[in-house]
Simulated assay, not measured.
Amino acid sequence: MEDLSLWIYIAMFGVAFVAGFVDAIAGGGGLITIPMLMAVGLPPHVALATNKFQALWGTAMASWHFARSGLLDFRSVFIPSLWVFVCSGLGSLAVLSISPEYLRAVIPFLLIAIFLYVLFSRGVGQSDRDAKLKPFIFYFIFGAAIGFYDGFLGPGTGSFWTFALVAILGLEMKKAVAQTKVLNLASNVFSFIVFAFSGNILWLLGITMAIAQIIGARLGAAMVVKKEVHFVKKVFLIAVFASICKLIYDLVK
């Protein structure tokens, strides 16, 4: 399966660059890369596995840049990340015996609620606010719920994390985006391990896309650091809206 045409490697390099850039700012990179991987002829399980491998590198680069820029303190999210890792593993195991179709139908409506809340809530994410839950309780509840969901199904995970960190924990939007990257990274690692042992990753294509992801994520993370919060909020809303459209299209086609 690795004997793909040169044009596929070139095209997917460009796709991964764009996905890494967008994902570092607002999430949703997988909604760009997975359809394109399947469009060039990869079976769904191979597309998902290869996508998980290449996306890890973009998320790791964005996390590293956010930490260097002062938006992220790894020590504050280390324990929550371990909890998310465990819960995502439980989700991955559960999906083997439970159909995700019921949950798939609900996700677009949850994203619509997030979109409307962020769009119409004045000042949301503009600056740090008082948390509605203590951090330990917040990470215990949302780490379990979102981590499990990411291992179980996945679409919209970044949006759910950013929304929860802004609306419940009271973080400013840019800090929320930075923490989202680390928490996403933690939940994705388990899936990558599963896919790596399954033998479904196309390593050469994955490495090609990973290089592009690193470049795109580096530029996207730099954009988050340099731009004002309202820019990040606009990109977040666009990404959530695009996710809603894509997921609804998948349901009705």
Rank of each mutant, 00 (worst) to 15 (best):
E2G: 12
E2Q: 14
M12T: 11
G14K: 04
A16G: 11
F17P: 00
A19Q: 04
F21R: 13
V22C: 14
V22A: 14
G29V: 01
I32D: 05
I32H: 04
I34P: 07
P35E: 12
V40N: 11
V46W: 09
V46L: 13
A49W: 07
N51R: 11
K52A: 12
K52S: 10
L56P: 05
W57P: 03
G58P: 01
G58T: 08
T59C: 06
M61Q: 10
A62E: 10
W64R: 13
A67Q: 11
R68K: 15
L72Y: 10
D73Q: 14
F74N: 12
F74E: 05
F74T: 08
R75L: 14
F78Y: 15
I79Y: 12
I79S: 04
S81F: 08
L82H: 04
V84A: 15
S88Y: 10
S88W: 13
S88A: 15
L90I: 14
S92Q: 09
S92E: 09
L93C: 06
A94M: 10
S97H: 15
L103K: 03
P108S: 12
P108E: 08
L111M: 12
I112D: 05
I112H: 06
I114H: 05
L116T: 11
F120L: 10
F120Q: 07
R122P: 01
R122I: 12
G123E: 11
G123Q: 07
D128T: 08
D128C: 02
K132G: 08
L133V: 03
K134Q: 12
Y139P: 00
F140N: 09
F140S: 14
F140R: 10
F142G: 08
A144N: 01
A144W: 02
F148H: 00
F148E: 03
F148N: 02
F152Y: 13
L153H: 07
L153K: 11
L153R: 05
G156E: 00
G158V: 02
W161Q: 03
T162D: 00
I168G: 02
G170Q: 04
E172H: 01
K174T: 04
K175F: 03
A176W: 05
A176E: 04
V182P: 00
L185K: 10
L185P: 12
A186M: 04
N188M: 06
V189A: 11
S191K: 15
F192A: 09
I193M: 15
S198R: 12
G199E: 03
I201W: 04
L202D: 05
M209S: 09
I211E: 02
A212I: 04
I214T: 06
G216S: 08
L219N: 05
A221I: 11
A222V: 10
A222E: 14
K226L: 11
K227F: 05
E228M: 04
V229N: 14
H230Y: 14
F236E: 12
I238G: 09
A239V: 04
A242Q: 03
S243W: 00
S243G: 12
S243C: 08
I244M: 07
I244H: 07
K246P: 03
D250G: 14
L251A: 05
V252D: 01
